[in-house]
Each structure stands twice: as C-alpha cells, then as structure tokens.
Design a protein around this nucleic acid. Structure first.
Lengths: 264, 264
DNA sequence: AACCATCTATAACATAGGTTAAGGGGAGAG
DNA sequence: CTCTCCCCTTAACCTATGTTATAGATGGTT
C-alpha cells in the first residue's frame, strides 16, 4: 500500500473519507471513478421522490438539498439537510421503494453511479465500506438529535439548536466563515424541519434577532454569540461526533485478520 | 461455499441476517461466535450511559430496551425500542463517547463482543457487512419515521402509529399473536417516545380505547381493528422495508468483482 | 396485613404554538 | 415601469397539549 501523506482529493466524498483515514491510491481511484458521472440540476428539483423505486446512488458534490417525508394530506417533515459529500440512497438501493424524497434547495452538482458499485466496494474495499458505514452512523446520530429537538425542545431552543448545528457542519467543510453562512432555505422549510408552523418560526427568529443572538440578511445568517446561542439551544456537540477517529479506524482495519481462521 | 437450505440459527442476530440472505457455514460460525459471551441483566439496567465511552458491542438476544437521549434538565426522548436481534453500539464503537443511553425495560439477555470483531467482519465477511449495513439503514428509516410522527402527526395519530409499528415489528419476530402483544412500558416511556406529556398519553390511550380500536389489560395490548388503527395513524409500512431483498443482496454481492481490476 | 413505591386515571386550569387574515417587500417577467 | 408571484411579517384569535393536583390501583416487602 502506498500512502501519500497530505493528499486531498478534489471530490467531496473523497475529501470526507480522507478526514477519517489516509486513503490508498487504489481507494482514491475507486472513489473518483464513482464521482465521475456528474449532472447539474436547478433548485427545487426532485432527486428522489417518495414512493419511487431506487435507481441510482448519488453523491452530492455541490449545493444543498433536503431529505423529507410527507403524509398523505401534505404535512411534511424535513428529516435532514444534504450537504456536499453526502450520499443519497446509499444502502437504500436494497429497499423496494424510497420512503422519503430528496429535493434540491439550490442548483446542485451530483454524481451518479450504479448500486452495484456499492457491493463492489464492500468486497474490494473493506476500509472504505467501514468508513461509509461510519458516516452513515453519524447521519443517524444527527437525525436522532433532531428527534430530541422536535420531541423535547421548545421552539426557541430547537431553532437555536438547528442554527448552531448548521454552523458547525458548514464550518467543517469550509462553508461558514466567522459565524456567518448562507442558509438557502425558506421559512416554510425551516418550519418543516423543526416541526413548527411557518408563523411560529417567524416569531421565533424575530425573538432570536431581538435578543441579539443572530442577524438575518436575506439568506445570510450571522451568529453573533455562538456561545450563548448554543446554550439557548442546549447544544452539546457530542452527537455530531466531530472528533474523527482516524487512528482507531485505520488501526483496527489494518490489524483485523484478513482471511479465514479456525474457530477455537 | 456450502449452503444448507433451510437452516435457522438459534441466535437472534443470525436469524435476522438469515432473513436477508442464505448464510454460509463460515458466516454462521462467525456470528454464533460473536453471540457466545452472554450476560443477563434485570429490568431498568443501563446497558449504555449517555456520555460514556464505548467499550463493547452488544447484541440483544432476549428482552426489550430503549435507546434514549436526554437534555441536561432531564427532559428525555426515547429514540427507538431495541428488540431481540438488534445491535447496540455497532459502528458507534468508533465514536468517542455515546450520544445516547440504552436502558433495559425487561430482564434481558445480551451478548457482548469486542469492537475489533466488527472490523474483522468487514474484512473477512463483506456479505455480512453489507447485511448489517442494510439493517442499520432500516433502523435509520424507523427513526426518521418517528421524527415525522413527532413533528407532524397529532397525539392521536402518533400513538396509533406507534402501536401499529410495534405490532408489525413484533409480529415479524413472532412476538405478537393475533393483534395482541406485551408492551413492557410505562406510560411515561410512551410519552417520552412520542414527545408528549404523560397525562396526554393517558388521555390519548383512553380515546383509542373509547373508540374501540385497542384494548389494554396491564401490559397487554390488543389491537381490535388494525386496519382502522393504521388509518388513524396514517401508517404506511413503506418505511419498515419489510420486503426483504434477499435475492438482490445476494446476487449483487456474489457477482461483484472480488479483487482489483484496472481502471478504464 | 399493612406499608410503600410506582403506576394509572381524571379533573381543572394554563400556555405554547397553530390558524387565519392581511399587508408589505423584492425580484423576475412582460 | 408595474405586474405578479413568492416570501416575510405581524396581529388576533383559537386549540391541542402541558401542568398541577389528587385519588385510586397494583404489586412487592416486611
């Protein structure tokens, strides 16, 4: 195995996995092959419709999208925000039909590849498989935290919490600068993400502005006092699992027996 | 590879994975090795405490538990119910600390093994790795559906929905019989799972009883009219992904190239 | 058999957040 | 330039759900 020390792939997915462990040439090649087939789409396009049969796996390369679920009567819950490097329909190609939709918020660039590549990945690149599984677990942790928000935090707390979460996630990929970031989202979508009505989101944002914790100018949000905003939102970054565990992951994988051994 | 046709392992985890695909002898041996080290615990024991460092991976063999997250002031959200065959702290051994707790509801039997075994599994048994990843994705789907419930369904809908969900999940593992099952859960826990107050859960259950949709006798719940209860809860079993995709999973894995190939 | 702790049940009251309604601003289209 | 559409904003009012309080079941313990 051959490991360049400070290599940073140009692909968002590669970059993401790089933060977990050092990739070999072979692994990087495989990943960039996955991201080769790129498509551009405008804002408000459906990448996946609830009830649709899964066809391809996609990687978000640039732009924002939301993952959402709807009830028959139109009520809708935004489950998560899809940011660059995130995968759409990863394991899910095994499911019969999609139980959620994915819709772009901005114009986006996505790469698509055949679901079979996932299995190939599991067979040929166990380290990548483990890393992807790990990032899937992180996504689940984010959803669980949102469930805690919607179930048990007040409107003000929830809203503060989401803003801090997005700030942290975006900072991590260089999309936020000094507490300032672009939130390409209507208040309706914010409401659907937080389980609130659009009117109440408006009230709540105004309250946060009045207290002086945030400033809003169009889609740009400025967090004035992230310390205090975190405390309003009861934000504990434990769940984001930002602490990369590269050494543990690498070591463990490299030391695990590669081939069969007898049972004791 | 040697594949007995109708073999059913005695271990809950093995049984679960068996429902996705036919296991080889080697795979079954490995799994049963994982479940060898069994411990018994009483009800209301913490299998994992929020904030704790992960030590071992566990498989629930028998009994119920809940996965829950708490806020500093004590408000709590139950994220999911842990049933036999479910894994506790799977990928998560890579995280620094647990962002949730796991507490038993009944006396339980759990198997424990070292986190390293997970990596071994990824390297030696890609098919098992894919199957576990798939079941992880199903768990995520259940949490996302609960988020939809808590965010957008009314108390009555949520409660109905949860009862139907548990009925379906338990039926699948033979723990429900003719719409009747044991729910080893206080109303407080139900409230924490649904983002409601304990008083309101009580009101809501009474309403469901008054309408005649369910009957409650101690911990035993009887669903009288699951068709109507499903419709009250806007239940769409899409998200449970009950349709096993064994052929797709097996085929895909068996046909994926096993070793390196040149880039085009 | 009496005690204690834990649950369930219900009533009375309080409020966070939903709903409806109406006006205003900005940006793209003609 | 102004029309239109979409989004934001705010006010007034309403209701689903939370809170507090109390009593009754239930079941294990001494």
């Amino acid at each position: 195995m051959n490991r360049p020390l400070a290599y940073t792939p140009s692909t968002p997915l590669g970059r993401k996995l790089c933060s977990y462990m050092v990739l070999t040439d072979e692994e990087r090649n495989f990943l960039s092959e996955l991201e080769r087939n790129v498509t551009k789409l405008p804002a408000r396009a459906d990448l996946l419709q609830q009830g649709e049969r899964y066809g391809t796996v996609r990687v978000m390369r640039d732009g924002w999208a939301i993952r959402h679920k709807a009830l028959p009567d139109g009520r809708r819950q935004v489950v998560n925000f899809v940011l660059p490097g995130d995968i759409i329909g990863f394991y899910c190609n095994l499911f019969e039909t999609a139980d959620h939709g994915v819709t772009t918020l901005t114009s986006v660039e996505v790469a698509s590849f055949a679901p079979d590549r996932i299995f190939e990945l599991f067979k040929r690149f166990p380290r990548l498989a483990a890393a992807l599984a790990w990032s899937g677990a992180k996504e689940e942790a984010i959803i669980a935290e949102r469930l805690l928000s919607v179930g048990r935090r007040t409107a003000l707390e929830r809203t503060a919490h989401l803003i801090v979460e997005l700030l942290k996630r975006l900072s991590l990929v260089g999309l936020a600068d000094g507490g300032r970031f672009i939130l390409p989202v209507t208040q309706e979508i914010l409401a659907d993400a937080l389980g609130l009505s659009i009117v109440h989101i408006n009230r709540t944002l105004r309250r946060l502005r009045d207290i002086g914790l945030i400033e809003v100018a169009g889609q740009q949000i400025t967090v004035n006092d992230d310390k205090q905003l975190s405390s309003v939102g009861q934000f504990d970054e434990l769940y984001l699992h930002l602490i990369r565990a590269p050494k543990r992951l690498e070591h463990a994988l490299d030391q695990a027996p590669d081939r069969s051994r007898a049972m004791p």
